[in-house]
Measured scan of single mutants.
Amino acid sequence: ATVHVKGVTYHFDNPEQAEKFAKRMAKELNGEVHVDGNTWHVD
């Protein structure tokens, strides 16, 4: 799974980790999470 945060890409072997990371980053950055298959975007 892949997480894109403000133009930076993070790779996770575990999709659950990717989801938790994306949601945590969105919270910290006051952003929104969008999911597209195995790819998470934090804007």
Rank of each mutant, 00 (worst) to 15 (best):
A18Q: 00
V5H: 05
W40K: 01
R24C: 15
N38E: 06
D36S: 13
E28T: 06
F21D: 01
E19C: 05
H41E: 06
V42M: 02
N14E: 09
H4N: 09
D36I: 15
A22H: 00
G37C: 02
P15C: 06
V8Q: 11
P15K: 11
V33K: 02
V33P: 04
H34Y: 14
A22L: 02
N38A: 07
G7V: 02
E19W: 06
D43T: 15
G37N: 07
M25E: 04
N38W: 09
T39I: 13
F21T: 02
A1N: 08
P15S: 11
H41I: 15
F21W: 06
A26L: 03
H41P: 01
P15L: 11
D36L: 12
Y10D: 00
H4S: 09
R24A: 14
L29F: 07
D13Q: 11
G31K: 06
A1H: 13
K6P: 03
H34E: 05
K27P: 01
K6V: 07
D36Q: 13
V8H: 11
V33G: 02
K20F: 09
E19A: 09
N14T: 14
W40I: 06
T9P: 06
Y10H: 06
N14C: 05
K27V: 11
M25W: 09
V5Y: 07
N38S: 08
V35G: 10
A1C: 07
A18H: 00
E28A: 09
T2Y: 13
A26G: 07
K6T: 07
E19N: 04
K23M: 13
F21R: 00
F21P: 00
V8W: 09
N38G: 06
W40Y: 13
H34T: 13
H4I: 15
G7K: 04
E19D: 07
R24G: 07
W40V: 03
V5F: 08
V42T: 02
K6H: 12
Q17P: 03
T39G: 10
K20L: 13
H11Y: 14
P15F: 12
A22K: 01
H41F: 15
K6A: 14
V35N: 13
A26N: 03
F12K: 00
K20R: 13
A1M: 08
T39E: 12
A1P: 12
T2P: 01
E16M: 10
L29S: 05
E32V: 15
G37D: 05
N14K: 09
M25I: 12
P15N: 14
N30I: 05
H11F: 14
Q17F: 07
Q17H: 11
V8Y: 10
E32F: 14
Q17C: 07
V8F: 11
A22G: 02
T2D: 06
V3Q: 00
E16C: 06
K27A: 13
H4K: 12
T2F: 13
Q17R: 07
D36H: 13
Y10M: 04
D36W: 11
H41C: 05
G31E: 04
H11N: 08
P15M: 14
V42N: 02
Y10L: 04
V33H: 04
Y10R: 03
A18T: 00
D13E: 12
A18N: 00
T9H: 06
N30A: 08
V5E: 01
M25D: 01
H4F: 13
V3G: 00
E32H: 14
T9K: 10
H11P: 05
D13Y: 07
L29H: 06
N14R: 08
E19M: 07
W40H: 03
Q17S: 12
G37P: 02
P15E: 09
A18S: 02
T9W: 12
T9A: 11
D13R: 08
H11K: 09
D36N: 13
F21K: 01
L29Q: 04
G31V: 12
Y10V: 04
K23N: 12
M25A: 07
E16N: 08
M25S: 04
H11M: 08
V3A: 03
G31C: 08
V42Y: 02
V5D: 01
D13G: 08
G37I: 03
M25K: 08
G37F: 04
V42A: 02
V3L: 02
E19Q: 06
T39P: 02
H41Q: 07
H41K: 09
T9M: 11
E16W: 11
K23W: 13
A1I: 13
W40P: 02
T9D: 06
V8I: 12
H4D: 05
K6G: 15
V35E: 06
F12R: 00
N14F: 09
R24N: 11
G7W: 05
A22T: 02
R24W: 14
H34G: 04
V5I: 11
A22P: 00
T2W: 13
L29I: 10
V8K: 13
K27L: 13
F21G: 00
A26C: 07
A26H: 03
T39V: 14
H4A: 06
V42F: 03
D36Y: 13
A1R: 04
L29D: 03
T2A: 08
E16A: 12
G7L: 04
T39N: 13
G7C: 03
A22W: 01
L29N: 05
E28F: 07
T39A: 14
K23L: 14
A22M: 02
M25Q: 06
E28D: 07
N38Q: 08
N30T: 05
T39D: 10
N38L: 11
E32A: 13
K20I: 13
V35T: 08
V35L: 11
N30W: 06
F21I: 02
E16I: 11
N38V: 07
T2H: 08
N38C: 06
V35Y: 14
K6Q: 14
Q17W: 06
R24M: 14
E32R: 14
E16S: 10
M25R: 05
D43W: 15
G31H: 04
N38D: 08
A26S: 05
N14W: 08
T2C: 07
T9L: 11
E32D: 10
T2Q: 10
M25H: 04
V33I: 14
E28L: 10
H41L: 12
A18L: 01
V33A: 12
Y10C: 03
